[in-house]
Design a protein around this nucleic acid. Sequence first.
DNA 1: ATTGCTGCAAACTCTTTGCAAGTTC
DNA 2: GAACTTGCAAAGAGTTTGCAGCAAT
Lengths: 139, 139
Amino acid sequence: MVTNQIREILKDKNLKITPQRVSILETIFSLNNHPNAQQIIDAVHKKNPNISVGTIYKTLDTFVETGVIVKVRHIDESLRYDWRVENHHHLYVEDDNQIVDYINDELNLLLEDFFTKNRIPGFEIKSVKVHINGKYIQE
Amino acid sequence: MVTNQIREILKDKNLKITPQRVSILETIFSLNNHPNAQQIIDAVHKKNPNISVGTIYKTLDTFVETGVIVKVRHIDESLRYDWRVENHHHLYVEDDNQIVDYINDELNLLLEDFFTKNRIPGFEIKSVKVHINGKYIQE
DNA sequence: ATTGCTGCAAACTCTTTGCAAGTTC
DNA sequence: GAACTTGCAAAGAGTTTGCAGCAAT
């Protein structure tokens, strides 16, 4: 992701283009696997140790409010940030704090079909995500 | 869950039977939906405000170490406690910190079949859990 | 010049830890 | 009585907030 693209994203959202925001957004785009706030802070500080923690939290809030990124509420207290919107699933890698995207349209269709046929009374489904837990092995 | 059963569980694990432990375990069994530490603390304090927070945290650790309860690491920083072992799925209720069990054998079979046919190269699957996000509605 | 952003510091929540006093067996 | 458990208080991590000064438009 080039800096110019980032400046354009900010401009589109009527956000002032500051070095801090550019750097933070650049960092988020450089992190592959749904970083949480702490991981973003650490990564930002590697390049710019002088950006304050408060600023980073406020910037993340701003990005979420304006739709630059989304805040994924996996469970009430576990927040992760992602800039992708499409529905996809995740591999949770054991002994490793890694979360890898798993995209499979056939699985999406299968689940959609299942939950159409098996409605949950009184419950409106917004999205269905599959968490695949396991680990990488030598083959 | 009767207090006598709880005393027996503690005795089986060679844990000293203290009023605090009985009360905490009673509370955990009374909470249906995978409470986190804070929810357990709140619930315990409703009945026994004088049990200290430190004691509750230590007791939870002790229970986990001895296998009375399990600590479920949904994602690296989101811990919830549960005493059930069987594989089941969850409804994540929006605007509400509720997680409701969703048990459906047909869904389990469907997923098992899918991932048998669609192996992920180099990845050993330990478990597959479906997170159904949505909200309750008036019907 | 105006608006909005940043950095700092204080404060708050959740969790962990050490230790002296108290409780269980 | 020995061993373990509790409560308290201090401390640490992560996050939020207010405000004065500063930067972007």
